[in-house]
Design a protein around this nucleic acid. Structure first.
Lengths: 178, 178
DNA sequence: CCTTTGTTTCAAAACGTTTTGAACGAAGGG
DNA sequence: CCCTTCGTTCAAAACGTTTTGAAACAAAGG
């Protein structure tokens, strides 16, 4: 295969590995996704293992995760018993899937815990010594700061995720914050 | 100290550890920041090591990183040779610092690499066999997909970072995507 | 200067994560 | 049925990261 094609393939695959890492996935997941993305045809487990030079076991486990996140799907090839995989090509859907389930839940939990902390601090006021009361007030101030931060994150996520519409990248041209 | 105060402290500190991890920092950095955030007074290196039950060496190194990212600052106490630290309380500034330098650079690099790949593919067209040409065209399609994705990320970062104005959380109320 | 107190550095150890490969299971085909 | 091919699982090994603690260093104060 021509050098240029190989170079482009390499840098894309390793770049997607890096991106996967950044989002808290494994490097291998990103590389598998990249390999599939740059393959016009679906690839078998053995082909993936061969191309990336990793064990079949690793491919098997990581492909399962990729499927769980909707980043790849199985493709059935008539008359072939093997599993073939293709990359999910709608990247916006992948972003939505990750931001919408994982990230949104994180923010949700954080806000929940903060809310509970605030309630507990307020409820306990009577039992506190004067010094403790002062500290409790201080804590309440910091809790409020953290709350604003996570509320902002929630707003940003909602804005990006929209109201359930699928969103074409090329149509995304303006984001505004007041 | 009252149970409620300890519980709130614990969950905040460990929550910030989690958040730090999420952003690719060390757990300890987040916990140190949390401890400082919930302390009305600046804390010394030994107090931090004692509170979090980690070694002084670890505190020393992680506090340096916190300072590098502008998440904490030294506070000089008259007549005391020790270093005292306080959390940077403007969280928006921290977000700006992280998104603006680290994340933005990542996106920048990705776009750069993609651009180069596209150029290389176009430049090499003449040297390719017909099959390779077909693959090259396929690659160009995928490169374009990735480009849109990173361009979107760039837009989102710009929107959040604004044009250099400092941004009050409570004033952030609307993000729009068309 | 020397001592004391505080901080930084860094190699070794502890720890956690990822990868492997062999064993097992499943699913045809002969 | 047995044999072959493919996929999955999981314990052990490899690997990478984080933590520690001791030694070096720095900065007063006596």
């Amino acid at each position: 295969m021509h050098d240029t094609l190989e170079n482009v393939n390499d840098s894309t695959v390793s770049g997607l590995g890096r991106l996967a890492r950044f989002f808290g996935f494994s490097d291998v997941m990103g590389r598998l996704y990249g390999t599939l993305l740059l393959s016009p045809n679906p690839l078998s487990l053995d082909e993936l293992a061969g191309t990336l030079e990793i064990s079949k076991g690793s491919v098997s486990m990581n492909m399962r995760d990729l499927e769980r996140w909707g980043m790849a799907k199985e493709v059935w090839v008539r008359g072939d018993r093997r599993k073939f995989y293709a990359a999910e090509s709608d990247m916006w859907q992948i972003i939505r899937s990750v931001l919408g389930s994982r990230e949104q839940r994180e923010v949700q939990v954080a806000l929940q815990v903060l809310g509970e902390s605030i309630e507990k601090l307020q409820a306990a006021e009577d039992e506190l010594t004067p010094e403790e009361q002062e500290l409790a007030r201080y804590y309440l101030g910091r809790m409020a700061d953290l709350q604003s931060l996570f509320q902002f994150a929630q707003l940003a996520l909602h804005a990006i995720l929209g109201n359930g519409e699928s969103l074409n990248f090329d149509a995304v041209t303006r984001i505004e914050i007041d």
